[in-house]
Design a binder for these strands. Structure first.
Length: 910
RNA sequence: GGACCUUUAGCUCAGUUGGUUAGAGCGUUUCCUUGACAUGGAAAAGGUCACUGGUUCGAGUCCAGUAAGGUCCA
């Protein structure tokens, strides 16, 4: 076995093991009836994406879960892939074309799509390569893409099926229109943003009574040419005589528009009068519908004003048009005032411009299985972690709106609908849509394509990703499903994602799973996953979201270069408490790296301490352990090992990954390295205890590597082999992680029973050493190793000290520790095992020593007063549980003993 | 307007069903290159647990309210 180097160098280790894992297809998910399945489907990153800190967190968590599942002996499978991301990808490619002064229309649909595919093959999917650097143990042979032929088939099958079931319809309705991407968007793709703008007070003159005006407030004067009425509340006394009269439209082609009464008008807002522009506002559209008002659309699809806006405004962009409209109103004396105004404006998520409510024909989906989707989460078949997100989920489902699934894009799944040639698809009725002679809906398309025209629109990207948990495993093709093990791996076990896509994705996947998987079977069999773990959002030091535009996101690949993939993983998990947002701190990543180095060096020390025994299995190591030679520290470290194993179990059960990392960190660094390894140093000098001590170290390191492996896979794999735990050609994940009770039982059968009294004694020994060290530091002797300590104590306590003397001498940095009946005039401190004195050859600064002791005396007296008053309280004594009461009494006795000893010491100083 | 989250050491955060003297990492101060590790070791300083009230023998923890900050939905 090669010697372990002095410091951990991640680069070569990472490269070597990732290649070995791939070579051996160690991540292949294979159905095995003898094992429990454990499935994760990756939230498919956009094919245009590059790795962000959010991805690092999210995918590290998935890797932790799936690696742990393998160690637990489950048939684990993590399915990777990417999303075609309609708008995002099309935008990227169009941007490249623009550099050559071209648009997609210069190429036409077919040629443009070729360009996109070209781009995807050249540059798409970089992110999957980056995930490999992170150590992601995906089953890469299963990599999926939402535009792959068979995936597309699943998407279109679902469309046809839902259409036939009556869930999908075509309708002319108000949609969120993005003037940049020139497509409809779903409600979820609209982000409300507070905007400081201007509100314009505009007056409209009565046609029958010149000089009388009705005043309205609007933030959008450029839409006035689209006004078709003024609405007031029917009970508003200000307008009692006005209803039914007409006013002159303030802008645009001359028109007289009526004043109408509608109960939905808010009397309190502004003047209580509302301009009605049905083409450009959702509420106005509804009011217009009730009153059968005409619709005048003054905007083009790209957000410029059209001829209906009148010659002064036509051709202007909507924002320029707004300014111009205000000027025109001013000239005509119709503008009463401009006021600063803060309101919420809907922005396109992708293009980041205000969306336009726009009346267009679109395809809509009435969600299937809404009630079941609620029940699945409400009744705990799907568990959310943290649980509180289920409230957000249920609230959305309670108020669910039909989903606009069509997009006016080219990159995506083209809707499988054909219209009979010659038909005007803008004028189709519901009956027409149901008429197979006029509209054809199928996967294969019509038999006589020359007589039909296919729908231009494509489907919303999420209308493909909502099928991800099963369309990635061959659905609906029976042969493929069998080959890919859909029946075995579905439902998946855990979904790890951000709460920001709870509506976009999580809720929709649940409905899709319930609708399409295993129809007729129980809900538990149809749900797409059993657990959903919501990560927090990674923010910068100022608490801002990390984003490209702010440039506040570190490049994860730089961090991997700097700290190693394991360091990055360990660091990010340690700052990611369950469901809480995370403030990124690079120093935590650094401490992840430091932890790896510590682990490395502890193993290095083990290797240097003596030849490896048989480390091939837990049983082999236990066979080397000699229970008869156990001292208190041996008992204590094994006790802590079992406790840590249990704690990590609990953390996985409760999805508390940062707590698991903290438990492992504390155990390994403090309990093992700082104490056990240090006390080992004297035990290793003694041929009588050496072999047993090394066997215990081997036992602890083996279990620690197994527990840590899901978090830091590379270094643990390397050390696993360096220390001879695994044979060449095998991996750490080939071994089964032993739980605490199994280790305890196995130890038991070797005659090893943990001595809890010994465990308690070690706590006292640690305290003794710590106090002795502090005593040295107080007297500026911290670095001296030739100090003599004297101890006055009882026989029982001395017995404990004497049994561990060589270790204590080393740990305290002493020349020797000896018992005395009485010591006078030396600096002293009280420990749980007696009073320890510094045997100073030089004279002591009595004054300073007295001050120090007095301070300690004051401290303990305060505590005694507190404890005494509690015990003096009748209510406490009569009502507190006996264990608490007894604890308080014991505490008081100890405190009093310490005070007595301190008083004695102080007195002895004169 | 509705819902949810956060407020604990200089900074970032733990603190599980209420129960000894509220913890960790980083930072700070002092000391140490002792044969695993200076990516390290030892010691120390540092907190009226946002505020007000309530429940309780006992509240960082439970309840009500207030304040500040944040997120989502209207």
């Amino acid at each position: 076995m090669a010697e372990i180097t002095k410091s951990y160098e991640p680069r070569d280790v990472e490269k070597k093991w990732y290649a070995a894992w791939l070579e051996a297809r160690a991540f292949a998910g294979k159905p095995d009836p003898a094992r429990e399945p454990y499935t994760i489907v990756i939230p498919p990153p956009n094919v245009t994406g590059v790795l962000t800190m959010g991805h690092v967190l999210n995918n590290t968590l998935q890797d932790i879960l799936v690696r742990r599942a393998r160690l637990e002996g489950k048939a684990a499978m993590w399915l990777p892939g990417t999303d075609h991301a309609g708008i995002a990808t099309q935008t990227v490619v169009e941007r490249e074309l623009r550099k050559q002064k071209k648009t997609r229309h210069d190429f036409g649909r077919e040629k443009f799509l070729e360009k996109v595919w070209e781009w995807r093959h050249e540059k798409g999917g970089i992110i999957l390569e980056q995930l490999r650097r992170l150590g992601a143990s995906c089953d890469w042979d299963r990599t999926q893409f939402t535009m792959d032929p068979h995936y597309s088939e699943a998407v279109l099958t679902v469309f046809v099926d839902l259409f036939r079931k009556g869930h999908i319809y075509r309708g002319k309705r108000m949609v969120n229109w993005c003037p940049v991407s020139q497509t409809a968007l779903s409600d979820e793709e609209v982000i409300m943003k507070p905007v400081n703008g201007t509100i314009y007070r505009v007056r409209y003159e009565r046609t029958d009574a010149p000089g009388l005006f009705v005043e309205v407030k609007t933030t959008r004067p450029e839409t006035i040419p689209g006004d078709v009425a003024i609405a007031v509340h029917p009970d508003d006394p200000r307008y009692a005589g006005w209803i039914g009269k007409t006013v002159r439209r303030a802008l645009g082609p001359a028109a007289e528009i009526p004043i109408i009464a509608d109960a939905s008008v808010d009397k309190e807002f502004g003047t209580g009068a509302l301009k009605i522009t049905p083409a450009h506002d959702k509420v106005d559209f509804e009011i217009g519908g009730r009153h059968r008002l005409p619709i005048i659309d003054v905007l083009n699809a790209n957000g410029t004003l059209n001829d209906l806006a009148g010659p002064d405004l036509a051709g202007l962009d909507r924002f320029a048009g707004r300014k111009k409209a205000a000027e025109l109103l001013k000239e005509r004396g119709a503008l009463v005032a401009e006021e600063a105004y803060a309101n919420n404006v809907g922005y396109s998520e992708r293009a980041d411009v205000p969306i336009e409510p726009r009346l267009t024909w679109q395809w809509w989906l009435r969600y299937p299985k809404v009630e079941e989707a609620k029940a699945a989460v409400r009744d705990g078949h799907i568990k959310f972690h943290p649980e509180r997100w289920s409230k957000v989920y249920l609230h959305w489902l309670e108020n669910i709106q039909d989903w606009c699934i069509s997009r006016q894009l080219w990159w995506g799944h083209r809707i499988p609908v054909w219209y009979r040639k010659g038909l005007d698809k803008e004028k189709l009725t519901e009956a027409d849509l149901a008429d197979a002679a006029k509209v054809h809906v199928s996967l294969a398309g019509p038999a006589d394509p020359e007589n039909w025209v296919q729908e231009d629109d494509v489907l919303d990207t999420w209308a493909s990703s909502w099928l991800w948990p099963f369309a990635t495993m061959g659905w609906p093709d029976e042969t493929k499903m069998k080959a890919q093990g859909l029946d075995y791996f579905y439902p998946t076990t855990t979904l790890v994602t951000g709460p920001d896509i709870i509506f976009f994705w999580v809720a929709r996947m649940i409905m899709a799973g319930l609708e399409f998987m295993r129809p007729g079977e129980s809900l538990e069999r149809r749900i797409p996953f059993k657990h959903v773990y919501f990560t927090g959002i990674i923010r910068d030091q100022q608490g801002r979201k990390m984003s490209k535009s702010l440039g506040n996101s570190p490049d994860p690949l730089d961090l991997i270069e700097k700290y190693g993939a394991d360091g990055l993983r360990f660091g990010i998990i340690s700052i990611a408490p369950q469901g809480q947002d995370i403030r990124f701190q690079e120093d935590r990543i650094e401490s992840g790296k430091n932890f790896c180095n510590k682990l490395w060096n502890a193993c290095r020390f083990r290797q240097m301490s003596g030849d490896a025994g048989d480390n091939s299995s837990l049983a082999a190591i236990l066979a080397r352990v000699e229970p008869a030679k156990f001292d208190a520290d041996d008992h204590a470290i094994l006790d802590r090992l079992l406790a840590t194993t249990r704690e990590v179990d609990r953390c996985f059960f409760a999805f508390e990954f940062s707590a698991a990392v903290q438990a492992l960190y504390g155990f390994f660094w403090n309990d093992f390295c700082d104490w056990y390894v240090e006390v080992s140093k004297s035990k290793l000098q003694d041929p009588g205890t050496k072999a047993n001590c090394l066997a215990i170290q081997d036992l602890v390191l083996r279990q620690t590597l197994l527990l840590l492996h899901p978090f830091i896979p590379y270094i643990t794999e390397e050390l696993w082999h360096q220390l001879g735990y695994g044979a060449a050609g095998t991996f750490i994940e080939d071994v089964r992680l032993d739980n605490a009770s199994h280790i305890a039982t196995s130890s038991h059968s070797r005659g090893l029973v943990l001595d809890l009294a010994a465990v308690a004694a070690v706590e006292k020994l640690k305290s003794f050493v710590s106090i002795a060290r502090a005593l040295k530091a107080e007297h500026n002797l911290a670095s001296r190793r030739d100090v003599k300590f004297l101890v006055t104590t009882g026989d029982a306590e001395w017995c404990v000290l004497a049994g561990n003397l060589s270790k204590l001498v080393r740990m305290a940095g002493a020349a020797e520790i000896v018992r005395r009946d009485q010591v006078d005039g030396a600096p002293a401190a009280v420990t749980p095992l007696g009073t320890v004195y510094l045997d100073l050859a030089s004279t002591v600064d009595v004054g300073a020593e007295k001050v120090r002791l007095a301070k300690e005396l004051e401290q303990i007296s305060k505590h005694i007063a507190g404890t005494e008053s509690r015990l003096a309280n009748q209510a406490f004594v009569s009502k507190a549980p006996p264990a608490v009461l007894e604890g308080a009494r014991k505490q008081l006795a100890e405190q009093q003993a310490k005070r007595a000893e301190l008083e004695r010491l102080l007195k002895s100083l004169g």
